[in-house]
């Protein structure tokens, strides 16, 4: 039983990383006032691009992850163009991008023959001698490099958002675009920057799933994780650190599913697979129950910016 817990907790960071990175990417873009539902689609783009880069270009997995980030941010320009420049309804545009990505990645993955091919991946680090510490060593000091990088990214994004001029402008555009506009901040430009930068992280989340975690490309392999990330953002009240804790929680939930079956506990497997989605809904209910209408939602979330109505 002790082994069960150590194995479980040691695998949780790997399942948590995609949630954490995707939620952080969404937070970045939603802080600029753009309601972003694209994560499910952009994660697929990242996953396909990463897997494709390893399989067809035979690049190092690290480079494949960078390609995944680039691919997702490229596709996010489409979303940015729709919602920032053309002011298309952000829900419709987000959904359209997700389904476009689902279709496109399915098509490319099949035509290029990348389905179900094994990928050589990043080895786990072994931070000796810390990794030799019993229990803690396995859980904290024998993860793959991206797990540690994710924590660094959280520090970085947090710093940029709250301690730089760029972050101040991005947040102002999300809270009150009219005020930002009057202060000489370009609303469009900062929203585009936030969307593209956030999508880099979402792409990395997707690339991580295919290249590092599962080591395969399968059509539709994100399986709703992007939607869970959207919910995580609400749970975290648009703040980075709570999103990381939330991601760890979901990482633990997802990591326990295969382990329960492996431990020989008889639970209907398909009902087990519902757990992450039901847990997400439970968390949303808890959020709604707890925070009696006070959210820290960016003031202008979901509203296209239209300068100065004249009365």
């Amino acid at each position: 039983m002790n082994d069960f817990f150590i194995n479980w907790l040691a695998s949780a960071p790997v399942t948590a990383v995609p949630y954490a990175l995707a939620a952080l990417g969404l937070i970045l873009s939603e802080r600029s006032g753009v309601l972003n539902l694209t994560a499910e689609g952009l994660m697929l783009v990242g996953a396909l691009a990463g897997a494709g880069a390893v399989l067809s270009l035979h690049v190092h997995p690290a480079l494949a992850l960078i390609i995944a980030m680039a691919a997702a941010s490229l596709v996010s320009l489409l979303f940015a163009g729709l919602v920032v420049v053309l002011r298309v309804n952000q829900v419709i545009a987000g959904l359209a991008v997700v389904f476009f990505c689902q279709g496109l990645t399915g098509l490319i993955g099949t035509v290029a023959g990348w389905q179900n091919k094994q990928i050589d991946s990043l080895p786990s680090l072994n931070i000796w001698p810390l990794s030799e510490i019993p229990v803690i060593g396995r859980i904290f000091f024998m993860q793959d490099p991206i797990v540690y990088l994710t924590i660094a990214i959280f520090f970085g994004v947090n710093y940029v958002l709250f301690r730089t001029m760029l972050g101040l402008r991005i947040r102002s555009v999300g809270e009150n675009p009219a005020a930002a506009d009057a202060a000489g901040v370009s609303v469009s430009l900062h929203r585009i920057i936030a969307i593209v930068a956030g999508s880099c992280l979402i792409g990395l989340a997707g690339g991580y799933i295919s290249v590092v975690s599962v080591k395969l490309w399968v059509t539709g392999m994100t399986g709703g994780r992007g939607w869970i990330a959207v919910a995580l953002v609400v749970f975290a009240r648009w703040a980075p650190w709570p999103a990381l804790w939330g991601a760890l929680l979901f990482g633990c939930i997802e990591a326990v599913i295969p382990r329960i079956a492996a431990a020989g506990i008889a639970v209907p497997q398909y009902l087990m697979l519902m757990t992450p989605y039901l847990a997400t809904i439970a968390v949303m209910v808890w959020v709604g129950y707890r925070q009696s209408a006070v959210t820290r939602e960016p003031g202008a979330l979901g509203q296209p910016h239209v300068r100065e109505e004249r009365r």
Partner: peptide, 14 residues
Amino acid sequence: KLVKPFTIAENILL
């Protein structure tokens, strides 16, 4: 044209 959740200093810096 003020950003409500920001401090006075943040608004003026913006």
